[in-house]
Design a protein around this nucleic acid. Structure first.
Ligand code: ZN
Ligand code: ZN
Ligand code: ZN
Ligand code: ZN
Lengths: 136, 136
DNA sequence: GCCGCGGCGTTATGCTATAACGTAATCAAA
DNA sequence: TTTGATTACGTTATAGCATAACGCCGCGGC
């Protein structure tokens, strides 16, 4: 079992608030969702959220889910933020499961090698239903 | 080498126009890009484009690229639209390469089996530079 | 005829993201 | 200590992506 990631102390106030909102949510949040939650803290403009998100994503503390236009806090204590990360997104409850698979990564590297493509960022997102929701 | 896909005859006028725009482009197009191209054909509203795109994507004739909020015509003559499709997107020239990898698909199925997750749609998008652009 | 269905056109609206401007705090070099 | 570079911040305005809701029309089956 993974323990939850330590929160760095050097976050700015806005960054801390945004990360807190993400961490406290059981599902991905859009920037505007986050903004709504943080109006009580004095935040008013989307840009305040986006700027904080940029930094958090850059540091691997949060991830952007392209297929949802939304964000989640990173749940991986062991920092596999290097390399490919896959996300399994439950369309029923919103829960997001984050995992890495070196075989897939190798497979991708092999394809890239054979075609001369230089890989930058890779996004992999699986939509479906989690075990809990399937049982219910 | 793949031959290019036959265009089904039963497309509506709008669907045909939209698919034509995508096919004629060397890079992904947003719905609004397409709309701008088709104003000369009498199309005026985003919804006309989105409705056509919905049908084209549903039939596997076009694909949505989540990381770009844009669309491409399917370039695969052999209809691997069943199963996982990966896209390699060149950030320099915009070219999109579409491919399938059964090993990755199996890997994903294995992960799903072990966690009880039921896989629906999967999106896999690789950003980087294509061989041609790297040479230049 | 009549109905159901799918596509169409239009207007209005909502959601997502960034541009452009100026301010303030911090830190290091000069 | 002044200077300049850097980084975050706050605000307003705007750009870009997507859908709701309405009514109309044409076509097939019954
Ligand atoms: Zn993570
Ligand atoms: Zn679930
Ligand atoms: Zn395809
Ligand atoms: Zn290229």
């Amino acid at each position: 079992m993974g323990h939850s990631r330590d929160i760095p102390a050097d976050l700015t106030r806005n960054q801390g608030l945004v990360l807190g909102a993400l961490t406290g949510s059981g599902a991905p949040l859009s920037a505007y969702d986050i903004l709504d939650q943080l109006r009580s803290e004095g935040l008013r403009a989307p840009l305040q959220i986006y700027r904080a998100l940029d930094k958090l994503v850059e540091r691997g503390l949060a991830h952007r889910l392209e297929s949802l236009n939304a964000f989640v806090a990173c749940t991986d204590a062991h920092c596999h933020r290097k390399g490919l990360i896959a996300f399994a997104i439950c369309e029923s409850c919103g829960k997001v499961d984050e995992f890495a698979d070196t075989v897939i990564e190798e497979r991708l590297a092999a394809w890239a090698g054979s075609t001369g493509f230089t890989v930058g960022r890779t996004t992999m997102e699986i939509r479906g239903r989690c075990a809990a929701c399937l049982g219910a």
